[in-house]
Every structure is written in C-alpha cells, then in structure tokens.
Amino acid sequence: MANEHEIAASDDIRTGQMTPVRLGRSTIIVTRLPCGTLRAVSGRCPHMGANLQFGCITGMAQGPEYGKIEMTRENEVLRCPWHGFEFDLRTGDPAVPAPKAQAMKLRLYETREHDGRVYVSA
C-alpha cells in the first residue's frame, strides 16, 4: 500500500519546472500542469532509464503543413534527456506509440495539496 509523503510547499511546484523528490530509493519528478493540476511521475524514463530531471518540460510540436511547426499544449510534455522521447504529462503516454516490445508509459503518482503543502503517494 502506498504511503503518502509531504514533499514540498505548494508555491514551490510550478508550471514548466521539474522538482525532483527523493522517496526511498526512487526519484519522483513533480510539476504542475498549466491547468493547475499537480503531476508526479517516475524519475526514470521507461525507455532506457535516463534520469528525467535532466530532461525538459515543453509543448507538443504540431505540423499543420510541410515546413510549418506550431507549439501547442505548452508545459504539458516532458522530453527525456537522452533520446528526446516525448511524454504527455496529462496521461503519461508517449507522444509516439511505443513499439510492441516495450512498455513506454510514464508512471503517474497520486498527489494531493492541503494547507499549502504538496503530498505524493508512493
């Protein structure tokens, strides 16, 4: 059963920023989606285990036509520091479907805010 951990002040978890939190032997990345929702994900990339705190939070690149790039959903995508794989922070799903041989989804952790403090269940 997951234990709830108090990990930070609410004001310290900001949109577009990653806050790595050490819980036991694992690191969890905590951020805030633009809608205000907290998001806590595993700190290792499901592809090859890269430390995601060295990655970046960005948007989803869209290409309405050849040669035209539009950034959408700013601060809702996490890119791995190694291969640049993109993960949707709303769902944990990869932006590109995973190959059959690999599970490629970020693990999401339950979060809660209370009295200006952030709690993660892990």
């Binding site: 690149a61 869209q62 290409g63 309405p64 036509e65 050849y66 040669g67 035209k68 790039i69 890119r79 291969h83 640049g84 794989f85 993109e86 990869p94 932006a95 590109v96 479907p97 190959p99």
Partner: peptide, 18 residues
C-alpha cells in the same frame, strides 16, 4: 525510421504516423 521519429518528431511534426 520509427526510432528516429520517436526521438526527433519535433523537427518534422507534419509527419503524423510512424
């Protein structure tokens, strides 16, 4: 190409499928 697309899709997002 699939691997390159996973890691470099941001450069060519007009490609919509693997």
């Amino acid at each position: 190409m699939d691997r390159e697309y996973r890691q470099g899709r941001v450069e060519v997002p007009w490609i919509k499928k693997l």
